[in-house]
Computed example of a mutant assay.
Amino acid sequence: MNTIKVNNREFNVIKLLGKGKGGYSYLVTDGRREYVVKQIHHEPCEYYQFGDKIQSEINDYKKLEAAEINIPKMLDVDKENERILKEYVDGDTIYDIVLKDEMKKQYVEQVKDMCSKLYALHMNIDYFPTNFIVNDDKLWYIDFECNDYMEEWNFENWGIKYWSKTPELLKYYNEHKE
């Protein structure tokens, strides 16, 4: 894929950034700026049930925006082709930072600050470290997925297991390295 359209705007694809349970994210450019285009996919996911994925992304974005946590701006939605254009936040993921032994205490403090805002609204986000980017020492949640709060899936009980070189993170790394 060399180009991708979001509504009537065409973008040159620079590279695949990653694949999640709901879609593929591509770094793209219009020749002036870089963006991310998320292309929704409908591949099966054994541990997560989806409804209308594109509408869920829109609804979740609005909830996260209202929660006032750092997320990239949703710039456009192409419902017909199930594509989302969003702001590109440059930086390393927490996953890469952990693997390079460059983790800083302030990143965990920042995610805990996000948690305090989210828990007050009875929400969880996907705390897996590939969903977080550090840009100028500021933590960004780059996914738009959020769910009703469940203690089992909060940061302290689930997410923290992947924010350092724990057995869980190393197992994931060994199963997904290229």
Score class of each variant (00 low, 15 high):
residue 4 I to K: 04
residue 8 N to K: 13
residue 9 R to T: 11
residue 15 K to H: 00
residue 18 G to M: 02
residue 20 G to P: 11
residue 20 G to I: 03
residue 21 K to D: 12
residue 22 G to E: 13
residue 23 G to S: 06
residue 26 Y to D: 00
residue 28 V to S: 00
residue 29 T to C: 06
residue 32 R to T: 13
residue 32 R to G: 09
residue 33 R to N: 15
residue 33 R to D: 14
residue 35 Y to M: 00
residue 40 I to F: 05
residue 40 I to M: 12
residue 40 I to V: 15
residue 42 H to I: 08
residue 44 P to C: 02
residue 46 E to I: 09
residue 47 Y to N: 13
residue 49 Q to A: 08
residue 51 G to E: 14
residue 54 I to L: 02
residue 55 Q to D: 07
residue 56 S to H: 08
residue 56 S to I: 02
residue 58 I to E: 12
residue 59 N to L: 13
residue 63 K to H: 03
residue 64 L to R: 14
residue 64 L to G: 03
residue 66 A to Q: 15
residue 69 I to Y: 09
residue 69 I to K: 03
residue 75 L to R: 07
residue 75 L to M: 10
residue 76 D to F: 03
residue 77 V to K: 05
residue 78 D to H: 06
residue 82 E to Q: 15
residue 82 E to A: 12
residue 83 R to L: 01
residue 84 I to C: 06
residue 91 G to M: 08
residue 92 D to R: 13
residue 93 T to P: 11
residue 93 T to I: 07
residue 95 Y to L: 15
residue 96 D to N: 14
residue 97 I to Y: 04
residue 99 L to E: 06
residue 99 L to Q: 11
residue 99 L to K: 11
residue 107 Y to Q: 02
residue 111 V to A: 03
residue 112 K to P: 01
residue 113 D to E: 11
residue 113 D to R: 09
residue 117 K to F: 03
residue 121 L to R: 15
residue 121 L to P: 01
residue 122 H to S: 15
residue 128 F to D: 05
residue 129 P to W: 07
residue 132 F to E: 04
residue 136 D to W: 01
residue 136 D to C: 00
residue 139 L to K: 08
residue 139 L to C: 10
residue 140 W to V: 08
residue 144 F to G: 02
residue 151 E to K: 08
residue 159 G to E: 04
residue 160 I to L: 12
residue 164 S to K: 15
residue 165 K to Q: 15
residue 169 L to T: 14
residue 172 Y to H: 14
residue 176 H to E: 14
residue 178 E to H: 12
